[in-house]
Nucleic acid binder design. Structure first.
Length: 545
RNA sequence: GGCCCGUUGGUCAAGCGGUUAAGACAUCGCCCUUUCACGGCGGAGACAUGGGUUCGAUUCCCGUACGGGUCACCA
């Protein structure tokens, strides 16, 4: 009996790998085209890190006329969540990051290298495992979970390196006959990779982001096929990225230390290894310490969070790009109106260390993004958000769309657009006073310098009766405000007042504040003239009287 | 603990042997025909630490400290 017989005994039905090598031929792509991918697991709540990876991958593929595909990595059935794949697809769609190939539903995929779901590729992994087995590069391991745990405890107690290697690899030296006998006797087993590595030798890895890294060679006989018949991440990575023609593996840097294993696997399988780009992790400040942003503890770790609070996906993408390449910021300033598709992203310009996720900065980016939207776009996006998350806002906006567009158009569309909105959840508060049914004329407002009720009444009455005319142009309106100030004994000009404050009780700004607060309930608002224009004659008179 | 990776203002970051050590966010002040937002101008604020190497180190080397990752039949 030899290795081949053993392989045959273990995987009698597995095809020869030549079948798959022919079925999935090398991609025919132009020189320099990058084939990149994301490999999310359907564990529910898509992580913002997945979106981050997708932004990077999408850009790499676009810039090189390459391919961006999505492969669902669902080999851990315990963690799987119902509808998990659809959630991933939905998330990518919302961020406008559709892959060129990949799953398009829980069970269907598009693209020539499918299926793009690891649990549906079982036969493929078995074929390659059989191939290794038949060459004596893999072997069945018979230790139970408990035995392995026990072994680790012993190793820890003895303060030696933990793991399945050297003298600890007890199944490794079983003869083919012994192994076959155990299998025939029905003993449970898994398949291990027979590592040719030696811990006292070094391997060099050149990472696109991290640069030169040196590791000890891997000497662990890692498991490649689990007892459920599915591959481990390492094995699936090697087989899939080989077959699918991945040229650059961009993934989180928590994988960096697995590179020796992966390189070895590619080597022993006879595959050409891809280039690797290990991206820094998104971190979060937790009581002064940095730690990985986590789905369990941090709401902002979920891609859906941004949708819920109404931060446009465009803003999130720009922020992520900003973290990925700090040159993005300068580019954006130089090209305020270009699509981010035109930005030249460079993988090797990525920072080596992890960045703290900065919500304040994200909001700032978002504020700029929204400021460039037209009133129509604000309306469309806001109402889409509101329909799902804020019914009151939705009915407010949709009751009179034309009117709402005018409200949203205040100080928008000009050279210096208003920048006071960074997420849709703020919108209701920002514009509520523009809607009569949301405005309580009799509420107690906080006024400024002039706060005496009778005086306020006097000023607003005078304004309405003597100065207000909805047809005035802005300059006339402005001059009239000054006239009003003068008539009630206030300084016409702020500068005059500041030069000699003892001469007046206040200035025109104090008077306009009276009008502003009475009209809107707020001391801080956009341009009052525009507000009055939108509010219309009737409402202005009604509120000021 | 072993093995990796990292450490420039509060945050994100340029810089890669000689710089007044960029810029952005945040913060403070002033200005911007009346508020606020925007915009403009300005201020404060940083090379973790100790040794080398060098005429000269934020930049190169070694140690230390600190932070992060990883050591699963999870990805």
């Amino acid at each position: 009996m030899d290795y081949k017989d053993l392989a045959e005994l273990i995987f009698p039905d597995a095809k020869d790998i030549s079948y798959y090598e022919e079925k999935y031929p090398r991609r025919d792509l132009p020189e320099g085209a990058a084939v990149v991918r994301i490999g999310p697991s359907p564990t529910g709540n898509v992580h913002i890190g997945t979106i981050y990876q997708a932004v990077i991958a999408r850009k790499m593929a676009n810039q090189t006329n390459g391919v961006f595909f999505m492969r669902v990595e669902d080999t851990d059935q315990k963690r799987e969540v119902e509808n998990g794949i659809n959630q991933i697809i939905e998330s990518l769609t919302k961020f406008d990051l559709e892959p060129d190939e990949g799953m398009i539903s829980e069970t269907e995929s598009k693209g020539p290298y499918g299926p793009y779901r690891q649990s549906m590729r079982g036969d493929i992994y078995k074929a390659y495992a059989k191939y290794l087995l038949s060459q004596g590069k893999a072997y069945p391991g018979f230790e139970t979970q408990d035995q392995l745990n026990e072994m680790r405890e012993k190793q820890e107690a003895a303060k030696v390196r933990t793991g399945y290697y050297g003298v600890w690899a007890t199944s490794r030296n079983l003869s083919v006959e012994e192994a076959a006998e155990k299998i025939k006797a029905g003993e449970p087993y898994i398949i291990r990779f027979k590592s040719p590595g030696r811990e006292d030798r070094k391997i060099k890895h050149k990472d696109i982001i991290k640069g030169n890294v040196e590791f000890p060679e891997n000497d662990q006989d890692i498991i490649i096929i689990k007892s459920d018949g599915l591959p481990t991440y390492h094995f699936a990575h090697a087989v899939d990225d080989h077959l699918m023609g991945t040229t650059i593996v961009s993934r989180g840097d928590e994988w960096l230390s697995s590179v020796p294993v992966h390189l070895q696997l590619f080597q022993e399988l006879g595959f050409k290894a891809p280039r690797y780009a290990h991206t820094p992790t998104l971190l979060k400040n937790d009581n002064g310490n940095k730690r990985k942003i986590s789905k369990r503890k941090d709401p902002e770790a979920a891609a859906s969070y941004y949708e819920e609070v109404g931060i446009p996906s465009q803003s999130v993408k720009e922020y992520l790009l900003n973290i990925a390449n700090s040159t993005f910021e300068n580019w954006r300033r130089a090209n305020p109106d270009k699509s981010i598709d035109e930005f030249d992203f460079q993988l090797n310009k990525m920072s080596v260390s992890g960045a703290l996720f900065d919500m304040v900065k994200l909001l700032d980016v978002s504020k700029n993004v929204i400021s460039k939207y037209s009133a129509e776009r604000v309306y469309d996006e806001a109402i889409a958000w509101a329909n799902e998350f804020d019914k009151e806002l939705a009915s407010m906006l949709s009751a009179d769309k034309e009117y709402s567009l005018r409200v949203l158009g205040i100080e928008r569309g000009n050279a210096k657009p208003r920048k006071d909105l960074s997420k849709w959840s703020e919108l209701k508060h920002t514009i509520s006073y523009m809607y009569n049914d949301k405005f309580d004329k009799d509420a107690e407002f906080e006024y400024g310098k002039v706060s005496d009720k009778d005086e306020i009444k006097k000023i607003t009455k005078l304004y309405v009766e003597k100065y207000f005319d909805i047809n005035d142009d802005k300059q006339t309106w402005f001059d009239k405000m000054k006239d009003l100030a003068e008539e009630v004994g206030f300084a016409r000009e702020v500068k005059e007042f500041k030069a000699n404050p003892e001469n007046w009780p206040g200035h025109v700004g104090d008077i306009s504040t009276v009008i502003r607060v009475t009209l809107t309930g707020r001391q801080n608002t956009p341009d009052l003239y525009e507000i009055m224009q939108v509010l219309g004659k009737e409402t202005v008179i009604e509120r000021l009287s």
